[in-house]
Amino acid sequence: MSEPLAHVADDTAAVPAADAAHSGRKPWLKGLVMALRIALCLVFGLPLVFLIVSSFKPDNEIFADLGTVNAFLPVGSISLDNYSGVFDRVPFATFMMNSVLISVVTVAAGLVVNSMAAFALSRMEFAGQKIVLGVILATLIVPFETMALPLLWWVNQLPYFDGSIGWLDSYEVQIIPFIANAFSIYLFYQYFDSIPKELDEAAKVDGAGWFRIYRSIVMPLSGPAVATVAILTFLPAWNSYLWPLMVTQSESIRPAMVGMDYFKQMSGSSGTAWGQIMAYASMITVPVLVLFIAFQRAFINSIASSGVKG
């Protein structure tokens, strides 16, 4: 285990000879490859440009612009009408706050719970340690979707905090099952293993207990692992759709992704309100895109380390 976290976002790390297309001998090939890169930019970027641009146009103009380059340009009757339409139709602020609350609490609680578990597994010694680690790693192979329906049945039988039975239609049911995460534990475990154990010995000589070592020595040194786990747990929490679709009934606790369904159901006599859909989609997407662009390096490195062999 050499590098616990990857650093692909550094241009300097690129391997120069990985593709011979860039050897200086064939300038035409170089140009072709660059043209390909740019064409691919259009393939991956244009649909999103179209999404955001269309959110400012009335429905008839979205369709009218389709065959031309105008589809990707903010031209015509640009207005915020679709946005105000969204606010009239759905409790947007509530959906958004719910998504923020659910993702932030899931991520924050997950960071504490999973790093503590990884600390115990990586740096302490106790009987049964190997078995616990093995069980945790074995569960990585189980996709959430395989157990979603039994879990739905199960949370409906569980006693709730107020003494009643069943967790459905609550914030808790959207947060608590997703706090402990085998993959997060694995990432922390890997990172902690790369921090010299001599530090613990030195701290113990100074009279520090294990919890103190965790809090004051190991965690402060684990910034990159914290960032990785935060990003890798934030995205699925924010994007979660199947689970909240099944467990929420009240509008007051629904997250933004499930809110999208309102626009599909309300395609009445005037047809689907595509402009409003684009506006809603933009509002739930742009915050994440901004976060991504701001912390681009951390995002890409965290995804890269999810594939790095331990």
């Binding site: 649909p47 999103l48 989609a281 739930i284 997407t285 994440v288 991504f292």
Partner: peptide, 17 residues
């Protein structure tokens, strides 16, 4: 960064789009 943009866009939004 551009090739990565769809990854941070939720599948719900991508599906509607």
């Amino acid at each position: 960064t551009v090739y990565f943009l769809p990854v941070v866009t939720s599948m719900v939004v991508v599906s509607m789009l």
